[in-house]
């Protein structure tokens, strides 16, 4: 019996030509498949967040971002910052599947000597603009990038994906004020609004509702969308692109742990690693959703 490679394992069931990663539904499925395998192999955390953000990342990497896998530092590229760095496996999976680095490398997530740290890292990884992990940093840096582009008269856009729990951080709202003040209409924030944070639901921790109204009050153009509907997300990004004079935020309504019934809306799966029967059961559920 020959050993099956990581790539063969995760690409099993697709045609010999490989998965069509330009299809956002295929890429979202692969993000979950890799998220399960990576957290299983590494005994890693945050599978709930990876599953929650899967469609957001998939739509960005198929329908939105103007980027070049063969030229990751292309000056005119769009910039994406994953401010909720704990979902970094989703970005790693998308980058690998879109050709930035070999899919096989995903198996090194968390491992000694790996490039792929648990929270997303830019060090040596083509396609990652910024290392994050401490919450509340990404939107400020995105504001700086978008302001730089605006002053340069550049056409590229800046995207920042945040968690809703992350919006407890005051620095998020500092950046929200600044983005409005500077009229950064080429900045789009996306909040992965899965309503849960580390220990409990957001509403039981520091209540965010009325969340959309808060962003409106800060002067942002607000778009609410189903964060697991790739067409709705693509339409939301297109709407944000057309807004002038102000930044846009897409409040993407998501489910933490989306795709595996016993992980959905279960706070346990912020940290718990899928092993044994739970891994097998999760794999079976994902197989049932294959696009």
């Amino acid at each position: 019996m020959t050993a099956v490679s990581y790539t063969e394992l995760t690409h099993a069931g697709f045609s010999p030509a490989g998965p069509d990663t330009a299809d956002p539904r295929v890429l979202a499925w692969l993000i979950r498949r890799h998220g399960l395998e990576m957290t299983h192999l590494s005994r890693g955390s945050h599978i709930g967040a990876i599953f929650s953000v899967a469609e957001i990342i998939a739509v960005l990497y198929t329908k939105v971002l103007r980027i070049r896998p063969d030229d990751p530092k292309w000056p005119e590229r769009d910039r994406l910052i994953l401010s909720k760095g704990h979902a970094g496996a989703a970005v790693y999976a998308a980058l690998a599947e879109r050709g930035f680095f070999p899919v096989e490398e995903l198996k090194t997530h968390y491992a000694n000597g790996s490039r792929l740290s648990g929270h997303v890292s830019h060090k040596g990884i083509p396609g990652v603009e910024m290392s994050t992990g401490s919450l509340g940093h990404g939107l400020s840096v995105a504001v700086g990038m978008a302001l730089g582009a605006k002053r340069d008269g550049a056409a590229w856009r800046t995207y920042c994906v945040l968690g809703d729990g992350e919006c407890d951080e005051g620095s998020v709202w500092e950046a929200a004020l600044q983005a409005r003040q500077f009229g950064l209409d080429r900045l789009t924030a996306v909040v992965d609004h899965n309503r849960m944070q580390s220990l409990d639901f957001c509403e039981n921790t520091l209540a965010l509702e009325p969340f959309a109204d808060k962003w409106r009050a800060f002067g942002w153009h607000v778009i609410e969308a189903d964060g697991h509907d790739t067409d709705a997300l693509a339409a939301a990004f297109a709407e944000a692109d057309a807004v002038r004079d102000r930044p846009s935020v897409i409040i993407a309504k998501t489910v933490k742990g989306k795709g595996v019934s016993f992980m959905e809306n279960n706070i346990l799966w912020h940290y718990r690693t899928p092993q044994g029967e739970e891994y097998e059961a999760a794999l079976l559920e994902l197989e049932g959703q294959r696009p």
């Binding site: 400020s140 730089g148 600044q178």
Partner: peptide, 23 residues
């Protein structure tokens, strides 16, 4: 010149973002 307001955390993150655009 930019006045970031009384918001040093975001001012500093913003500075990093601006610097990463070549400034």
């Amino acid at each position: 010149f930019i006045n970031a307001g009384i918001a040093e955390q975001s001012m500093t993150g913003m500075a990093a973002g601006l610097a990463l655009t070549g400034r």
